[in-house]
Design a binder for these strands. Structure first.
Length: 569
RNA sequence: GCGCCUGUAGCUCAGGGGAUAGAGCAACGGACUUCUAAUCCGUGGGUCGCACGUUCGAAUCGUGCCAGGCGUGCCA
C-alpha cells in the first residue's frame, strides 16, 4: 500500500507543483471502495491555477492517463467532481499482500524501523501490599501491548515493572499491622488481609489524625534501615509478588526487569547531591525542592521536612539509571493521566540537569476506570479485584462453550483465552485517554465489538482450513478475487502494517483493536457472501489463500494486543 | 482560582481539515438440510455541548462560554 501511495506522489508531484510532502499529506481515502483507494482533492490548487477544482481534477486525470500506463501500482485514475481518484492494481496488491502473509507468517506486517534501538517501557507498577485492582489493568495491558507493538516495529524493548514497593503507605501499613495485625491471619490470605488493614487504618485515621503522623514516622524508620521495619517490608513484598505473578502468568505478561522504587534507595543521595552541585535545589518550608517557576510549573519536591524522600526523587534516579543502563531511544511511562503534572516536572528537571535524552522521555497517560457508585479507591475499600473480573469472564466463556460446543476439547484453556481476551480487549479498544465506565454487563458481553467476535471469526477460518482436501497454495490467480467483499478484505490486509505503525507512533493500541474489528467485519461479510469450499478450482484456491491471510493477520494483530486466538471455540 | 483532559444516536464509543458523520449495545423484523447463528441482513434513531472566528470546505483547527473528570508542595 505504501508503494502505491509513493507512486501516486511521484507521478502527481511534477504536475501539481507542490512539495512531495504536501502531495502526500493531501491524499485521503475515499469514503467508498468503488471510488478508488486514494484520492487527491483539487481544492488546494484552485486559487493558484485560477480554475475550479472540478476542471483541475479533469485536467489532471487526462494528463495522467499516459503516465499511468507505465505505472506498476496505479491501475486507473478517475476524475470525480473536485476529486482525483486513484485505483490500485488489485491483482498486484492481492499478490503482494497474500503472499506476504503466507511467507512471513507471524512476522507479517512487521517493520524494521527500530533496528538496533532500545525502547524502555515502564508499565503496570502495582503497589505492594495492595490488591491488584481493576484500576491496574490499564497500565498493565496498554504497556504490554505497546511492548509488543514496538517489537513489531523492530525495536528492542525492555519492559520494567516499577513496583510501588516504597513510600509512606508502607509506614501506614506497618503501623496498622503493629496495632491490629496477626501473623496467622496474614498467612491465610496475605493480600486481602493487608488490604483490610490498610482500609481499617484510613478509617481510624479519620477519627484520629495523629495516626497519619505516626505512619510517616514508620516510613522514616524504613528509609533509615531499621531492622524491624525492613523485615516487615520485605515480608509484605514477598507475599505480594507471589500474588502478582499469578495474575501476570494468566495474562501472559512478562517483564525484563522488576526494579521497584526501593531499588533506587542507594542512588537517592547521589542524585540530590548532583542536583545541588548544579545549583538547582532550594530549601523551602523545610523541604528540598527544585524551583520550576521559570517554566510555569509548580516546584518539584525532592525531600520532605522529615528527611524522607518522595517519588519524584526516586523517579529521577530511575530515569538516570535507565539511560545509563539501556541508552534508550525512548523511555515510555504508561501511567495514569492524573500524574501528568508529575511527569512534566520530572522531564523538566532532567532537562535542567542537562540530559539531552530528557526529550526522549514520554508519558503515555490514560483515563480512570470509573464506577456508577463513584470513585474507586484502595483507601475506601470499594476495590474491584482484577482476578474476580477475569474469573467471571472466563466462567461465562465456559458456560457459552458448554451451551454451543460441548464436545470441544481443551474447554478450560479455550475459556481462559476467550474470557481474558474479552477483559483485555474491553480495555484496549477505547482511546486510552478517556475514562472508562466499569460495567459488568459490558465486560460480560461477548457479542459485537469484542475480542470473542474476532476470535470467533478466526476459529471459523481455522475450521474451513481443517477440512479435507484443503491446502493453502501461495500461487493463485488473484484476478479471480473480484467481488466487493474480497476486495475489501485484501485492502484491509494490505493496511495492517501501516496500522501497526500508527498505533506505535500514537502509543494507542486502540487503533489496532479498531482495525481488527473492521477486518473481522469485512471477513464476516465475505463469509456470508462468498463460499470457499464449494467454489470452483482456481477461485477456491484463491479464496483459501485469502482466508489464510486473514487468519494470519487476526492472529498477529491479537498477539499485539496480548490476546490469544483459539483455533476452535 | 489556575492548569490538563473529556463532551458525537437512548446507552457505550469510532472518526480528529475533504465526498452522504459511522459501529456496537438496546428495540423491532428477517436468515441455520449450505464452510461454527459468539454470525449475518434489514428498520427506526443525530442542532457532532453552545457561540463566534479561520478556511474553497469545520464534528475535526482557534478563541470564549457551559457541563463533567483529574490535578494543583511534604501520597503515588
Amino acid at each position: 500500500m505504501e508503494n502505491f501511495k509513493n507512486e501516486i506522489v511521484s507521478v502527481l508531484q511534477p504536475l501539481v507543483q507542490l512539495a512531495e510532502k504536501d502531495v502526500q499529506q493531501q491524499l485521503t481515502v475515499p469514503p467508498e471502495l468503488k471510488m478508488g483507494d486514494y484520492s487527491f482533492p483539487c481544492f488546494v490548487l484552485s486559487k493558484s491555477w485560477k480554475r475550479s477544482p472540478q476542471e483541475i481534477s479533469a485536467f489532471l486525470a487526462e494528463k495522467l492517463g499516459e503516465a499511468i500506463e507505465e505505472s506498476f501500482w496505479i491501475s486507473d485514475v478517475k476524475s470525480v467532481g473536485p476529486y482525483l481518484n486513484f485505483f490500485c492494481s488489485r491483482e498486484k496488491l492481492a499478490q503482494e499482500t497474500l503472499q506476504g502473509a503466507f511467507y512471513e507468517k507471524e512476522k507479517y506486517g512487521h517493520l524494521q524501523e527500530g533496528q538496533g534501538k532500545n525502547v524502555v517501557i515502564d508499565f503496570s507498577a502495582p503497589n505492594i501490599a495492595k490488591p491488584f485492582g481493576i484500576g491496574h489493568l490499564r497500565s498493565t495491558v496498554i504497556g504490554s501491548s505497546l511492548y509488543r507493538i514496538y517489537e513489531a516495529m523492530g525495536y528492542n524493548c525492555v519492559g520494567i515493572n516499577h513496583l510501588g514497593d516504597w513510600g509512606t503507605q508502607f509506614g501506614k501499613l506497618m503501623l496498622a499491622y503493629k496495632l491490629w495485625g496477626s501473623e496467622d491471619s496474614l498467612r491465610e490470605d496475605p493480600i486481602s488481609y493487608l488490604y483490610q488493614l490498610y482500609v481499617k487504618f484510613h478509617k481510624a485515621a479519620e477519627e484520629d489524625p495523629s495516626l497519619e503522623e505516626e505512619g510517616r514516622k514508620w516510613f522514616k524508620k524504613l528509609e533509615d534501615g531499621e531492622e524491624e521495619a525492613l523485615q516487615l517490608w520485605s515480608h509484605f513484598r514477598d507475599l505480594s509478588l507471589r500474588e502478582f505473578n499469578r495474575i501476570y502468568d494468566r495474562l501472559d505478561i512478562t517483564f525484563d526487569a522488576e526494579q521497584g522504587e526501593s531499588f533506587y534507595n542507594e542512588m537517592l543521595a547521589g542524585t540530590i547531591d548532583s542536583l545541588m552541585e548544579q545549583n538547582l535545589v532550594q530549601e523551602s518550608e523545610g523541604a528540598l525542592i527544585v524551583d520550576l517557576e521559570a517554566f510555569g510549573l509548580p516546584p518539584c519536591l525532592l525531600r520532605k521536612k522529615d528527611g524522607a524522600t518522595l517519588y519524584a526523587t526516586r523517579d529521577l534516579c530511575a530515569a538516570i539509571y535507565r539511560y545509563e543502563k539501556y541508552r534508550f531511544h525512548r523511555l515510555i511511562y504508561v501511567v495514569g493521566a492524573a500524574q501528568s503534572l508529575h511527569f512534566q516536572q520530572l522531564f523538566k528537571v532532567l532537562e535542567c540537569m542537562g540530559f539531552p535524552w530528557a526529550e526522549r522521555c514520554v508519558h503515555v497517560p490514560f483515563g480512570l476506570i470509573k464506577f456508577k457508585e463513584g470513585k474507586m479507591s484502595t483507601r475506601m475499600g470499594n476495590l474491584i479485584f482484577l482476578e474476580d473480573v477475569i474469573d467471571k469472564a472466563v466462567e461465562l466463556a465456559r458456560q457459552i462453550i458448554e451451551e454451543k460446543n460441548p464436545g470441544l476439547k481443551d474447554k478450560n484453556r479455550v475459556a481462559e483465552m476467550i474470557g481474558i481476551g474479552a477483559v483485555i480487549f474491553g480495555d484496549l479498544s477505547n482511546d486510552r485517554i478517556k475514562d472508562i465506565d466499569f460495567d459488568w454487563d459490558k465486560v460480560l458481553d461477548f457479542s459485537g465489538e469484542t475480542s470473542p467476535y474476532i476470535q470467533y471469526a478466526h476459529a471459523r477460518i481455522c475450521s474451513i482450513l481443517r477440512k479435507e482436501n484443503v491446502t493453502v497454495i501461495p500461487e493463485i490467480n488473484t484476478s479471480l478475487l473480484e467481488t466487493g467483499e474480497e476486495q475489501a478484505l485484501i485492502l484491509a490486509l494490505a493496511r495492517f502494517s501501516e496500522t501497526i505503525k500508527k498505533a506505535a507512533e500514537t502509543y494507542k493500541p486502540s487503533i489496532l483493536a479498531r482495525y481488527l474489528i473492521e477486518l473481522t467485519r469485512d471477513f464476516n461479510n465475505f463469509y456470508h457472501q462468498c463460499p470457499v469450499l464449494t467454489a470452483e478450482g482456481e477461485l477456491r484456491q484463491a479464496r483459501i489463500l485469502l482466508i489464510d491471510g486473514v487468519r494470519q493477520v487476526l492472529v498477529n494483530g491479537l498477539y499485539l494486543l496480548g490476546i490469544e486466538a483459539p483455533s476452535e471455540m
